[in-house]
Computed example of a mutant assay.
Amino acid sequence: MESVINTIVWAAIIQGLLLGLLYIFSKRHRSRANKLLGFFLLCFVLEALTMWLPFDYLGSYSVSQYFDLPEVKLLFPVLFLNYVLEKLGAVKNYRTFLKFHYILVFAVMLLTLPNLILFAVSGESLRDYFSWDTISNVFLANQYYAFFLTIVALVISIKEVLRYQNKIRNAYSDLDMLEIKWLWQFIFALVPITFMWGLELTRIAFGGSGMSVFVLLTWAFIIVFIYFVSFIAFHRKNLFEGVPELVMNDEEATEQKNDHSGRDFKAMSIELQHAMESKNYYLNHDLTIYDLSKEMNIPPRLLSTCINQEIGVNFNEWVNNYRVEKALDLLQDPSKIHYSIEGIGEDAGFKSRSAMYTAFKKKTGYSPGHFRKQ
């Protein structure tokens, strides 16, 4: 059984190493987000090596004690959060927070450097200059803070994904931008790892020592996580791709938030619907509320409020309903019988086949092919 476990662990370590290097050095999918994810996976690899190496010494240098190798636990939540924020285009809102913790992370990791220097010069280590309790307490303080930071990172990630989805629904017409189920899965895949880690830290706080079942379960979930990321990496193209930069920043939104006085939203909604029907703005595959704002000379915030309150849907659904109606007309047009479903979708304003099918399912309950004139 032990040999089977070791085989599974080392297979996952190698898988994480290869996938991490792919994300970091891929020329085809070069991006800051991919590099962050690559380093995140390599942290798991380094942490695994400190625990699962079958030997305790390289020559006469210990690799099994505190700070003998770089301590990377603080890097887990920082890289995780940075990656999620990068995918959502929200890094700027947490730049100071991230910068502070990167400095803290590298300060902790650099504790290995004096350890190496001391060993090279005198054959001793930090444990020979400080008491074991001191080194142990520093290590545990780092552990507990890393765990606390992981909880914070998960909460911020969930908050920002919800914020992103709300903003897309009210400002962008591209349905593909809402296809981020994989990102939710990525976030929640860390929950069981964090939970087991918390149980282990609780056990230690109450005087526990040595290897526990919580540690083994934590690594079991880490192995599953590595294979899960490997799976979605080759099945979800948007794991590699970034998201368009959100045009309207929070400051602009705040300034416009209260600019509703004297507005006749009923009249505005009639004007909006007339403009959409007469000028076919929905045929623009990348239409945003900011584009429509310029055309209508109405602030984006007011447009969004009007659509939500008077028309009763968000911007995304409103625009795609027009596209569905246009596609239905084309599907019933005998002169378009030679057009493919994808071609009709493109002519109706849909950016992709998946966006068209999603909009049809939502509005009609059927796929576009159901309405094709025979």
Rank of each mutant, 00 (worst) to 15 (best):
R32Y: 13
R32A: 05
A33G: 08
A33H: 12
N34P: 00
K35P: 01
L37Q: 00
L37F: 06
L37C: 03
F39H: 03
L41P: 04
L42S: 04
L42T: 11
C43V: 15
F44I: 13
V45Y: 05
L46E: 07
E47C: 04
A48R: 03
T50E: 02
W52P: 06
W52V: 14
D56I: 04
Y57C: 01
L58F: 15
G59Q: 08
S60V: 15
S60Q: 11
V63S: 01
V63T: 11
S64N: 08
Q65R: 10
Q65W: 14
Q65V: 15
Y66M: 05
F67P: 00
D68S: 04
L69E: 01
L69K: 03
P70M: 09
P70S: 09
P70C: 06
L74N: 06
L74Q: 07
L75R: 02
P77K: 14
V78L: 13
L79N: 03
F80S: 01
F80N: 04
L81K: 08
V84K: 07
E86F: 00
E86D: 01
E86Q: 03
L88T: 07
A90H: 09
A90G: 06
K92M: 02
Y94H: 02
R95N: 04
F97N: 11
L98G: 01
L98F: 00
K99F: 13
K99Q: 05
L104A: 00
L104Q: 03
L104R: 02
F106H: 10
F106P: 05
A107M: 06
A107W: 10
L113Y: 14
L113K: 10
P114G: 05
N115V: 09
I117H: 01
I117R: 01
L118F: 07
F119V: 15
F119R: 12
V121W: 01
S122M: 04
E124S: 14
S125L: 05
L126A: 10
L126F: 09
L126E: 10
Y129W: 15
Y129R: 11
Y129M: 04
F130M: 10
F130L: 12
W132P: 14
W132G: 14
W132C: 04
W132F: 15
D133R: 15
T134M: 07
I135L: 14
S136P: 04
N137G: 02
V138C: 12
F139L: 11
F139K: 14
N142I: 14
N142T: 13
Q143L: 11
Y145G: 11
F148H: 09
F148D: 13
A153M: 08
A153I: 10
L154E: 03
L154F: 12
V155M: 11
I156Q: 10
I156T: 14
I158H: 12
K159N: 12
E160P: 06
V161K: 10
V161S: 07
L162Q: 02
Y164A: 02
Q165I: 08
N166H: 11
N166T: 13
K167A: 12
I168Y: 03
R169P: 06
N170W: 00
Y172W: 09
